[in-house]
């Protein structure tokens, strides 16, 4: 359903190869859109798969692009890493037009990417995938002590928070003093 190629958002992507559809293919030809992330690799995704993303769905619902227009105007998501966008596109394709099961086995497996994935999914407003990702985050702390949770969720201790706050105040004080001095200099 999706394919990727190296290119830029302005460059027209080559004709992507598509995986065979299920036997019950829709009678009306499906429309496709194109998205790319930070790496500029363009992904061709069906409108059906993109319905999972409230953000993209809202963007495309009134566009009425032809295939050529869509190809020429891929949606740029410069704030999303290419591999993350690939995961999201894959998930959307896997769940296209299907009710999502309570326990999703098609979740992206790379745990080290979970944070970036959560940010991307939240940005793209893919509610179900966000819930699945958040479940993974919640599962991380099952049976863990506060100390372990601090490690897992990267939570500063009170002392660290206080030190950071003190530092921030100090910095703000210096900046304010600098501004005052600059203003006084200007006045002279």
């Amino acid at each position: 359903m999706s394919s990727t190629e190296q290119g830029t958002s302005s460059a027209a992507p080559a004709e992507p190869t598509t995986a065979p559809e299920s036997a019950a293919a829709p009678e009306v030809p499906e429309s496709f859109y194109y998205v790319h992330g930070k790496d500029k690799v363009v992904h061709k995704v069906s409108a059906g798969a993109l319905q999972h993303s409230a953000l993209i769905h809202g963007m495309i619902s009134n566009l009425g692009y032809t295939e050529e227009q869509a190809k020429a105007n891929p949606f740029p998501f410069e704030n999303i890493d290419g591999d993350i966008l690939q995961m999201v596109v894959d998930w959307c394709n896997q769940h296209k037009g299907k009710p999502t099961p309570p326990e999703d086995t098609n979740l992206p497996k790379q745990k080290e990417k979970l944070f970036d994935l959560v940010l991307a999914v939240n940005y793209l407003e893919i509610k179900e995938l966000l819930t699945y990702c958040c479940k993974q985050v919640a599962m991380m702390v099952k049976g863990k002590s506060p100390e372990e949770i601090r490690e897992i969720w990267m939570i500063p201790t009170d002392a660290e928070d206080e030190a950071a706050e003190k530092e921030a105040k100090k910095r703000a004080g210096k900046e304010a003093a600098g501004e005052t001095a600059a203003a006084a200099g200007d006045a002279k």
Binding site: K111, E112, L114, F115, V118, L119, N122, L130, T131, C134, V137, M140, G143, K144, E148, E151, I152, W153, M154, I155
Partner: peptide, 19 residues
């Protein structure tokens, strides 16, 4: 017990945190 890959929860958005 093994500590999983860290997830900086306080850097997530309000929506994510609430979820």
């Amino acid at each position: 017990s093994p500590i999983p890959m860290p997830f900086p929860i306080l850097r997530t958005s309000f929506v994510v945190l609430s979820e």
